[in-house]
Deep mutational scan, measured.
Amino acid sequence: HIECVVCGDKSSGKHYGQFTCEGCKSFFKRSVRRNLTYTCRANRNCPIDQHHRNQCQYCRLKKCLKVGMRREAVQRG
Rank of each mutant, 00 (worst) to 15 (best):
Y58I: 00
N43V: 14
L65N: 05
Q55L: 09
K66T: 12
R30E: 12
G17K: 04
M69Y: 01
L61Q: 04
R76P: 06
L61N: 02
D49K: 04
C21M: 00
V67D: 04
G23H: 15
I2E: 04
C4T: 02
C7G: 02
G23R: 09
A42F: 05
Q75N: 08
D9E: 15
K62Y: 03
C7D: 00
C21D: 00
C59W: 00
C4F: 00
T20P: 04
F27H: 02
H52E: 13
M69P: 02
C56T: 00
E72T: 05
D49S: 10
Y58Q: 06
C59H: 03
D49Y: 05
G13P: 07
K62R: 09
K14A: 15
G8E: 12
L36C: 06
P47V: 11
K25L: 10
C56R: 00
V32A: 07
C7Y: 05
G13N: 09
G68K: 01
H15D: 06
G68C: 03
R33F: 03
C24F: 01
A42K: 11
F28P: 00
K66L: 10
K14R: 06
G17T: 05
C4N: 00
T39Q: 12
C56E: 00
N43Q: 12
E3V: 03
R70P: 07
R76G: 14
K62L: 11
L36G: 07
H1L: 12
C7S: 01
C24T: 00
K10V: 06
C24I: 03
L65I: 12
I48D: 05
Q75S: 10
G77D: 14
D9Q: 14
D9I: 06
N54L: 10
K25V: 12
H51Y: 08
Q50A: 13
S26A: 06
C40Q: 01
C59S: 01
G13V: 05
E22V: 09
Y58G: 07
H15Q: 09
H15K: 01
C21H: 01
T39L: 14
H1Y: 15
C40P: 00
M69N: 00
K29H: 10
T20Q: 04
C46G: 02
D9T: 10
H15Y: 07
V32I: 08
F19M: 07
R33A: 14
H15W: 15
G17E: 07
H51M: 12
K29V: 11
C64Q: 01
N54D: 09
H1F: 04
C64L: 03
C56G: 01
T20H: 03
R33P: 01
R41N: 15
C4Q: 00
S12E: 13
I48S: 05
F19G: 03
C7V: 03
R34D: 15
T37L: 09
V5Q: 15
R76A: 07
H15C: 04
P47M: 05
R44M: 12
A73M: 09
L36D: 06
C64N: 02
K29C: 02
G17Q: 12
C64E: 01
C56M: 02
C7R: 01
N45E: 10
V74N: 09
E22A: 11
R44K: 09
D49N: 11
I2S: 00
C46D: 03
L65G: 04
C59M: 01
S26G: 15
T37H: 14
P47Q: 12
V6R: 00
S31I: 11
R71C: 09
V32D: 05
R30A: 08
I48T: 08
Q57P: 10
N45L: 05
Y16I: 05
R44C: 07
E22S: 09
C64K: 00
R53L: 09
Q75K: 09
Q18R: 10
Q57T: 08
R53C: 11
H51S: 12
D49M: 07
L65A: 06
L36F: 14
V67T: 12
A73D: 14
D9N: 08
R41L: 15
K66S: 13
S26H: 07
R70L: 13
Q75R: 07
V74E: 11
R41V: 14
C40K: 04
G13L: 04
Q18W: 04
R53H: 06
D49P: 05
G68Q: 02
V5K: 15
Q18F: 14
V5L: 15
E3K: 06
Q57R: 06
Y38P: 13
H1E: 11
L65D: 11
N54W: 06
Y38W: 02
Q18P: 13
N54R: 04
N45R: 13
H52D: 08
R60N: 04
T20V: 14
R71E: 14
V32H: 15
Y38V: 05
E3H: 07
K63M: 10
H1V: 10
S12L: 05
Y16D: 14
T37A: 13
H51F: 06
F28A: 01
Y58D: 10
P47H: 05
Y58C: 08
F27G: 01
R71H: 08
R60E: 03
K66F: 11
D9Y: 04
K25P: 03
R30H: 04
T20G: 06
K63V: 05
C56F: 03
C40L: 01
E22I: 03
R76S: 10
T20E: 08
D9R: 11
H1G: 15
Q55P: 08
E22F: 06
D49R: 05
I2V: 02
V5C: 10
K66A: 11
V5W: 11
H15L: 11
G23P: 04
Q57W: 14
